Simulated scan of single mutants.
Amino acid sequence: MTRGTVTAADELDRPDVVAEVRAAFDRYERALRDADVAVLTELFWDDDRCVRYGVADRQQGGAQIAAWRRANPGVPAGRTLSGTTVLALGSDAAVVSTRFGYPDGAREGRQTQTWARLGGAWRIVAAHVSEVPC
């Protein structure tokens, strides 16, 4: 699809958007490791349409996500990431996909987050986390 001289392909992976979302994702990961509930809550969209599917749980809406996070503030020590990708979809949306693991190596985690620029700030609007045995 062409709009003037900009094609749809030109809107994918804009370096400025990739960098902004990667910085927001890295902030989320630090907060997850540090059990920083305030930042974890801030980075999820506070809206009833926001969804988070966890390994053995699910939340619908900002209030449920915040309540779950207060009860489950962080992750086990030693979490590592691999294969992290940021796919920017224009200037206001992106998808982050990553794999994660822990020192015991018993399972491979997979995490996908959809980020949107809302009110000038990047927020997670949908998240999915799963684990499979290694």
Rank of each mutant, 00 (worst) to 15 (best):
T85Y: 02
D36A: 04
G105I: 11
D16E: 15
V86A: 03
T112I: 11
A66I: 03
Q113E: 13
V39R: 00
A77S: 09
H128G: 15
G105C: 08
G90V: 01
Q60N: 08
D13F: 08
Q60M: 10
I124L: 07
V17H: 00
R110Q: 09
Q59L: 06
R58T: 11
R3K: 10
R27A: 15
P15W: 02
A56E: 14
G83W: 04
D34S: 10
T80D: 11
G74L: 01
G83M: 01
A38F: 12
D47H: 10
R30G: 13
G120K: 02
A94F: 01
A71Y: 11
V125N: 05
V6R: 12
G83C: 05
P15C: 02
D47E: 04
G83D: 10
D48W: 02
R123S: 09
G83K: 04
A35F: 11
A121Q: 12
T85C: 03
P103F: 11
C50G: 07
L12S: 02
E131M: 12
H128I: 11
A35R: 08
Q64R: 03
S82D: 13
G4Q: 09
D26Y: 02
L87C: 10
R69S: 12
D57I: 02
E11Y: 11
F44W: 14
Q111M: 12
R110N: 05
E29M: 14
D104I: 12
V125C: 09
P73N: 01
D47L: 06
T2I: 07
V95L: 06
D36Q: 04
T41A: 15
Q113V: 09
Q60G: 06
A71Q: 12
S91E: 14
A9T: 12
P76K: 01
G4T: 09
L43G: 08
G74D: 03
L32Q: 04
R70E: 15
V125H: 05
V51R: 05
R22H: 13
D10G: 12
P76A: 05
R52A: 10
A63I: 01
S82N: 05
A19K: 07
E42V: 13
T41K: 11
D36K: 04
L43E: 04
G78L: 08
W122Q: 01
A71K: 08
V132T: 15
V55R: 09
V51S: 06
R52D: 07
G78A: 09
G4H: 09
F25I: 01
G74T: 03
I65V: 07
P73H: 05
L87N: 04
G74W: 00
E11K: 11
F25K: 06
G61D: 03
P103M: 12
V51E: 08
A67W: 08
R49F: 02
S91V: 09
G109M: 03
A71G: 11
Q113D: 14
V55D: 05
L43F: 13
A126N: 14
R30V: 13
D34Y: 06
A63D: 06
V132K: 09
